[in-house]
Each structure stands twice: as C-alpha cells, then as structure tokens.
C-alpha cells in the first residue's frame, strides 16, 4: 500500500477495539496495522462482524480504539479528547452514510450547508461552496428539493456533496451503495472515484459488494478483526 510518490495519511498500529456485550467481550478489531497513502481509494471488505465498519468509524473519529494508535495526517487522533476529535472531524472528515441520513425537513441545499453553519465563514462564501459541490455531484437543479422529493441515488449525491463541502482530506463511506439499485450504485461509485481523483481526496469505503470494491485502488479484507488479505487493483 505504499508508493514512493505519496505520503502516508492514515497509519494504524496495533489497533484494537473491544467492548462488553452483556458478559461477553467482543473484539471487532485486534492488533491491526495499516498504512494508507494520501489520495488513494481504499475498499474495506469482509463478512458481517469482521470489524470493517468499526475500523471505518475509528478512522472517521466517531469511535475510539481500546488500545493501539491511529495517526491521520501526522496527528494521533487516538489521543484526542472527545471535543478535540469533534473539531478535527468537522475539518478533516467527510462521512457518507449507507442510508444517506439527510434531514428530512431541510432542502438539498440546506442539508449540504449544515457542516458550514458552525464554521467561521461568510454567508456568501457558504453559498459559493454549497453551489460548487452541488454542481460537482450534478444536483444544482435539485437544490430546493426536500429529500422525499429525490430518488435514492440523488439523496446519496446530496450526502456526498454534504461530505465534500468542508473540503476534507478524507472521505469515509459506509456501504454508500447498499441501499441503491445497480444503475444508481454504478453512478455513485463512478462519482466517488472521479471526485477522489479530481479533488485528490483519500477515500475509505466499506462494502460487501465485490463490484463496488472494484472501483477502489486497493481492497483490504478483514475477518474477525484482522487483516487477512490486501489486493491492489
């Protein structure tokens, strides 16, 4: 996963996550090591319970490891407090959910604008950025629509625009095509790959789908919390 041209942006060392479920200790991640170069598109694959979503959430800073370290862009986020992590996440991560998680009473424009409302930028700059990303995902003519007025594929495009609007260095996507039909899924994956390439974003995507994984630069297979295989494509 290393090349001579790009620096490492995500580095995990002995990453372990465990928690109690009743009296049983569950360990979705165990002593995982990972290095990912900047600008790469990584697909995480594996069966349910293999720890891929846990790894994605730790990379996104919404979950924390029990032990080990994770360093992103030279910042060890595993040492950050909850509030530091929230601030870091707002600037550095764009999260794309499987079920889009748009706010139903807000329009596409207002949903995309959400991450910018808490940042120190002017209204005109905010508007410029929102329109720019909506244009990038091809939804400039749907900006006044509410989520219920959009198709699944369009909703996911809005979610991608929302993830991009803060210009984060990393996009994380949790099964972004899991709720879409084949044609829409293909569109979304093409869009993700193109955006990653054009905007030089590092993308980490969780998927069950081999076809979806084929859009990534490399694929990691996890099983029982351990990396069992990596396959550059």
């Amino acid at each position: 996963m290393k090349s001579q041209s790009s620096p490492i942006i995500i580095s995990c060392r002995n990453l372990t996550k465990s928690y109690y479920k009743g009296d049983t200790v569950v360990t979705p991640l165990e002593n995982l090591d990972l290095d990912l170069e900047k600008g790469r598109f990584l697909a995480l694959m594996g069966p349910s319970g293999s720890g891929k979503t846990t790894l994605l959430n730790i990379i996104a800073g919404i979950d924390s490891p029990t032990s080990g370290s994770i360093t992103i862009n030279n910042q060890e986020i595993s040492r950050m407090s909850r509030s530091q992590l929230t601030r870091w996440r707002g600037k550095s991560i764009g999260y794309i959910f499987q079920l889009y998680h748009l706010i139903p009473v807000l329009t596409a424009y207002e949903n995309v604008e959400l991450p910018l409302l808490i940042q120190k930028i002017s209204r005109s700059e905010r508007e410029k950025r929102v329109l720019n990303v909506l244009e990038l995902v091809g939804l400039e003519d749907r900006m006044s629509h509410f989520p219920r007025q959009l198709s699944g594929g369009q909703e996911q495009r809005v979610a991608i625009a929302r993830a991009l609007v803060t210009d984060p260095m990393i996009l994380v996507a949790d099964e972004p095509t899991g709720d879409l039909d084949a044609a829409s899924a293909q569109n979304i994956l093409s869009l993700l790959r193109q955006l990653g390439h054009d905007l030089h974003k590092t993308i980490v995507m969780v998927t069950h789908d081999v076809k979806a994984a084929s859009y990534a630069d490399l694929t990691l297979h996890l099983e029982k919390g351990k990396l069992i295989e990596s396959s550059p494509l």
Partner: peptide, 16 residues
C-alpha cells in the same frame, strides 16, 4: 437521536 448523531459526525460540538 440519529439526526443529532449525524450532526455530531459532521463536526457539531456539544455547545452547538
């Protein structure tokens, strides 16, 4: 609840 979790994921702090 999920909406607030999404906002937290987007960088909204407790104060927000």
């Amino acid at each position: 609840v999920r909406e607030y979790a999404v906002l937290q994921t987007l960088g909204y702090e407790n104060i927000h």
